[in-house]
């Protein structure tokens, strides 16, 4: 596999962009930062499939396409099975020797938002992982159905207000916990599963390269702050991601072969979760006196999860 050097940012910047501008994602959207980084970290031919979501509707506005690779969209749920099918056909034709260029390396990548990964496409994703296709699935986790107006998904964290779980006099927003998708995908026995964030560009690029190199199904959950639905200024996308990783709301870690857990980023100063919550409009109501218990619960959940990750890293099981 021809990989781009990610030793430092200067060397990485010699990569040739294969994700073009003039897509219609919101200004400051983290989706395109993540997609660009994936396309820049390899020189190989890519076959990309995308679930319905912000990324799909914004990068393929007829008559334009922003993709300089083969790109396909079928339905809301089946990027994983589309990538799996294309990969199976590629393998079969390679065996028969009927490809145009039999030696050119091809990598298969599927993108999905959190709605199509955690909820709607989960059965297809799980099926493709069970069949063991050689592809990489990347979830762009912005914690709601941003494309249709910010409805709650099972990735929405507790306490956030969304258009279908609104905060008001009788509710503090979503009451259920977020699904732990990384653990679920690791439990499939996938060779490489990780949670990465765009502010730590090096660990993200290395994670992408590792996933593309690894044979078998790999899953990566990436944090993608959504300025529209999380309600912050577009320019703050990276600083919000910094807060997310430094408060351990989104710990950055990888799980190899379903058991070997490595924490990839340990913040020097772990910040209290209030700083992350206060920076976003969707958590504004939590700072009312009657909702203080929700913040305490979020902090408790984070501490417990971090403790669990550290113990698992030590135990190697």
């Amino acid at each position: 596999m021809a990989i781009t050097s990610v030793k430092n940012l200067k060397e990485f910047s010699t990569a040739n962009d294969r994700f073009e501008g003039a897509h219609t994602l919101c200004p400051g959207c983290a989706h395109s930062m993540i997609v660009r980084e994936l396309m820049n970290c390899t020189d190989d031919n890519l076959v990309v499939t995308t679930n319905t979501g912000c990324l799909e509707v914004s990068t393929a506005v007829y008559p334009f396409t922003s993709w300089d690779t083969s790109w396909m969209h079928i339905g809301f749920e089946n990027a994983a099975s589309a990538a799996g099918g294309a990969e199976a056909m590629y393998k079969a034709r390679k065996k028969k020797g009927t490809l145009k260029d039999n030696d050119a390396p091809v990598k298969f990548v599927a993108f999905g938002g959190d709605g199509s990964t955690f909820d709607i496409g989960f059965q297809w994703l799980s099926g493709a992982f069970e069949r063991g296709h050689d592809f990489t699935y990347i979830c762009l986790d912005n914690e709601n159905y941003a494309n249709t107006g910010g409805q709650r998904s099972s990735a929405t964290p507790i306490g956030a207000t969304t258009s279908t779980a609104q905060a008001g006099t009788h509710s503090y927003g979503k009451k259920e916990k977020k699904k732990d998708i990384v653990a679920i995908m690791a439990a499939h026995g996938a060779p490489y599963v990780a949670q990465l964030a765009p502010n730590k560009w090096k660990s993200m690029a290395k994670g992408f390269q590792k996933a593309l190199e690894t044979e078998g199904p790999c899953f990566i959950n990436t944090v993608s702050p959504c300025c529209t639905e999380w309600r912050f200024d577009p320019k703050d996308t990276i600083s919000i991601t910094d807060l997310a990783t430094d408060t351990l709301m989104f710990p950055i870690y990888e799980i190899i072969d379903g058991h070997e857990l490595n924490i990839l980023y340990r913040p020097k100063n772990v910040l209290p979760v209030e700083e992350y919550l206060a920076a976003q409009g969707r958590y504004k109501h939590l700072f009312k006196p009657e909702n203080k218990h929700v913040i305490e619960e979020i902090q408790k959940n984070i501490n417990e999860y971090w403790e669990m990750l550290q113990r698992r890293e030590e135990a190697r099981v």
Binding site: S13, H31, S32, T237, I238
Partner: peptide, 14 residues
């Protein structure tokens, strides 16, 4: 100083 921070985080390939 050519640190390329803007390049890696520009969402619009600009």
């Amino acid at each position: 100083i050519d640190c390329q921070n803007c390049w890696v985080w520009c969402p619009d390939t600009s």
